[in-house]
Amino acid sequence: MSLSDEEIFEKVQEVMEEALGVDDDEVTPEATIGEDLGAESIDYLDISFRLEKTFDIKIGESEMFDPNVLSNEEYAQDGVVTEAGIAALREKMPHADLDKFAADPQVDKLGDVFTVDMVCKFVKSKIS
């Protein structure tokens, strides 16, 4: 499947609207899936299912979002992600822009990384 960045975004936008019941103007590239669009844990599975169907791709468990990566004590201490943790996140989620997060790596701010743009980049990496 060959799609432009704009086409990918439009389809991801539709997926978010369907899965989360949000309006298209809320689904901006910068919008975070959790905080801005209100996704709860089961919604990530729903989004994953819908992306698989829309783009005819297969998404492995925790491939796009991996909330468990920081359960390792080596990766997160006292609410802050360690350098090893940042490295693990970069390896597990190469589609995520972690530069801003790495400057102030508070665990409770990791959700800011899960943006619509990150989903688009993930899809692009899967279909290319």
């Binding site: 599975l45 729903d46 299912f49 698989e52 169907k53 468990e61």
Partner: peptide, 10 residues
């Protein structure tokens, strides 16, 4: 069923 895998179904 519209989707089925190890994690569940739609």
């Amino acid at each position: 069923i519209t989707h089925l895998d190890d994690r569940g179904s739609s």
